[in-house]
Each structure stands twice: as structure tokens, then as C-alpha cells.
Write a protein that binds this DNA or RNA. Sequence first.
DNA 1: CTTGATACTT
Length: 561
Amino acid sequence: MLYKRSRMCGGCDYLRLWSGFFDVVFAIHQTPLSQSMSQLNVRLYQLLKHARSLSQTKQIHAQIIFRSLGGSNNLIGELIRSYRTHGKLKSVRKVFSEYPSLPPTFLWNLVIQAYSKTSFTEESLHLFKEMLLFGGRHSLAVPDDYTFTFTITACSRHRTLLAFGQNCHTMVIKHGYDSDVCVGNALVSMYVVYSRTVSAQKVFDEMPQRDTITWTSLVKGYATNGNMSQAEKVFVKMPERNEVSWAVMIAGYVRHEMYNHALRCFNDMLAEGNLEPNEAIFVSVLSACAHLGQISQGKWIHFYIDKNRVPKSSNIATALIDMYAKCGKIDCAKQVFDETNRRDLLTWTSLISGLSMHGLGKEALHMFDEMLAKGIKPDNITLVSVLNACSHSGQVEEGISIFYNMERSWGISPKIEHFGCLIDLLSRAGRLEDAFKAIKTMDIKPDAVIWRALLSACRVHGNASLAEGIIQHVSRAGDGGGGGHLLLSNLYASLGQWENVRRIRESKVENGDVSTPGCSYIEIDGVVHEFLAADKLHPLIAAINSKLNEVMKRISLDGGL
DNA sequence: CTTGATACTT
């Protein structure tokens, strides 16, 4: 039976393993059972450690049961670990519950860890509580430093378990495990997840020993919950940095929209020359290039990736496609997509979004159909791009149909951004009344983006009376929250009521409500140009504006607006 | 006998 099943599991590496099985069977037949037990144990343990497939794990499991080895800690532990790596939590649980006596701490730890890495983190904590009950009576199952590492990690995965994590922290101190580096690291990163930077810093300060992970976790804390200059202060004090430390800094700059800093940090890392950038770093840096329109740096990174044979994971491909598309090189984006072997949802989505960004709506929809044909289900981000594509290529009916079938076709309920796309779609097509009606029947509260889409269409189509109606509707609905001022002032601006615009702008300044102006970048011949909304600072602003006017004129001639 | 902690954007 063993022979047949292992032949079925296939693959090249199984041969070596199969000869292992053969040795085991051979050994069993050669020597008396009593003498072969410990050898058998060692052999099965080795086999489990190198098992490559679920089927192999199951075969060894069968041998463990068959040879009555169910009480060997090392075998059961390795079995649990193996089932966990295959995502078979039910099997993990079964092996654990079939342990012949009260499981020792080591096995509790493995099961708690197995759940802590999944979305069932509560189960880790449930097991931990159960363990505490047993541990009170049996010294066999008392939690140790590993147990706390796993439970604290579990608390950081789920966003609602701060109190439980704090209880663990108390127990850690009581048992004296707070001097353990890994426990301390788990605590620091847990407090970071819950934005408790002060607590994270306190744990950090009180740790008797720290390693690179401790320092990196603290840097991450300041980079996500504080500002980058605080993160920098910790970063420069670090005794040693690894790839993750740099990744945390670069991603922090990107999160804070400090794209130039991100690129500088990346170059600093390369200048030190002792570490190779990894996938996370490439993804962040490419995102910075995309935001800055820094095509030259982006191309250089692409070249670097190819030259160093960095595997083109779907994440890297996605970042490259996005970078090229945002830098205006849609052909390069397409080429990267064509060269990517393992396309997933993200790769497809970034291409569709890039095509749509470039006004190639028909092509975007075509790619969307191809994606569906490959059996890939879209997510809400894909659908935003697809709806935008419809909007930009005038495929109104197609867009409406996609919008109203989102729920039924893919189980995605329309969110505010999808409504925004729908309103944009209808507005651009001149169906202003339909758009207004759709907004009024929405079950989500419309935001400024949505009103702005409709209003700018009112302006384009010269429909002042509808704009008036919208103003009345908005002030009746009392939509003052977030961007309300801006919205109202845009409303009046679109009606040409400049007195009202001025009144709102002034009250905004009095309230100290200063919004940062929109900003965009483009790189031409190696020079990055920066433009702010209503820019007057660029040296060539007069020439740029006259060109812009010319473009706008030609658009209105061709587009028949 | 044997289990640990840090990273990515759209």
C-alpha cells in the first residue's frame, strides 16, 4: 500500500523520500520491533522534516499510528508543524487531541502557534486559556517563553485584542519572561500594531538585550504612528541594520508621501553596499518612482531587477506595471505584463487601471474580459478601474450593467468609490438627472468626490438649474463633514457665484482649516518638474498655460463638448 | 527530544 500511494504523489523529489520509506520498511523487517523503535523514530522524524507534500505527511502519520508512536513528542510535534505548513488546521487539532495523555507545553505551543498565523487567532487564545487551567494542576503544561511569544503575536494579528495582550504582558513580567528577546520583540510589535508607541518604547527601554528585530520594530512604530524624523532618530542609532530595517524606513517615507526621501534612503542603502534590496523594498521604491513620475529611476530599478535575476514575483510585476503606467509609458507597462508568467489578480488589475488611466478604456475592458475568461475573480479595486475605463471610453451601458451586477456576479457590494464611478460615468455622458437620482437612492452617504463629479458635469453641460437643486439638496442633507467647505465653494464656483465662493474661503481660513494643494510631478529629460494646483511658480508657466489652452480647445472641438 | 519575534503597494 505504501508503495502504491507514494508512487501516486508524483514529483521528482519523492524518489529520494520514497527510498527513505523503503529503508524504514526494510529496517522494520530486518530487526526485532523492540530494537528498531528508536531508529524508527529517528528515521520517521527525518522523513517528516523533509516531507514535501501533504500526501507524504499523511503516509508518515499512518506509520506513526501503525507503529504505536503516537506518544513521541518529537514526532507529534513535527507532524503538527507539517500539517500547519500545509494549512491543515483540522488535522493539527486532531493530532493534538489524540495525544494519549496531557500534552506537554511544547505541543500546546505548536498548536497555539498554528492558529496564531491564521485568521482564527481567537482559537490560539482559547487554547492558551485552556492551557492555563491545566497548568494550574499539572506542571507539565505550564506556559513558557514560547507560549507567550505566540499568544502575543496572535493578539497583534486581530485588531481587538489589546486587553488580552496586556494581560499576557502582565503574566510575562510575573514569570520573568520579560528578559527574553523574542517575547520582548513580540510585545514591542504588538504595541506598535495598536499605535501604543509609548508602551512600545517603554518595553524597548526595559529590555536587557535587544537585537535588530527589536530596533526595527521600534522604527516601524515611529514610522507608522509618529513622524519620520522620530523614526530616523531611532534608525541612525541602530547598531546593525538588515533588509527589513531599510524596508521599514522606505515604506514609511512612501506612507508619508515623502517620495524623494524614500528614493534617497534607497540610494543610501545601496551605497552602504553590504545588503541586497529585497522584494518589499523594490515594491516601495517603485511606488515612490510612480508618484514622482521618476521614469529614469524606475527604469534603472527595472534594469537592476533583471540584471540581478530577482525573481519577477507578481508583486514586483504589479509595481513595475503601475510605475510605467503612472510615468506615462503604457507600452512598457504592457510589455512587463506580457513578460510576466505568473499573473494574478493584482497584475491584471494594475494593467487594467493603467490602460484606463491612459484613456484606453476599450482595451482595458478587453483585458478585463480576458481576465474573467482565465477564471480570475475581480476585487473591489479591479472594479473601480473597470468602471473608470467604461467612463473614459464612453461605454455607458456596459458600465451601468457592470455596476448593477457586481453583487450577483462576484459577490462585491458597491462601495462609495464604485458609486463615484457610476456618477462620473452618467455625468460625463450628460445624463445628469439620472446621476442625481442615483445619488439620492444610494444607501451610502455621498461624499465630496461624488458631488464634485456631478457638479463639474453640470458646469460642462451648462446646467445651472440642476446645480442649484444640488446646492439645496446638500444644504438640506446637512453634509458638512470632511470636505464640505470645499464642496460648497466648488458648487458656487461652478455657478459663477464668486461672492459666495469668497465668503466660504474666508470662513475656512478663520477656522484654521488649511488644506494642502494638489500636486503632481513629471520627469522630462531627467529633470523632475513639480506643479501645484493654481501654480504660478514654474519658470515656463506662461508657455505651459498657453499650450494647455490649445489642448483644451482641441479637446472641445474633437469631443464635441 | 523541539517550537519563537520584524517587511510591501495598488
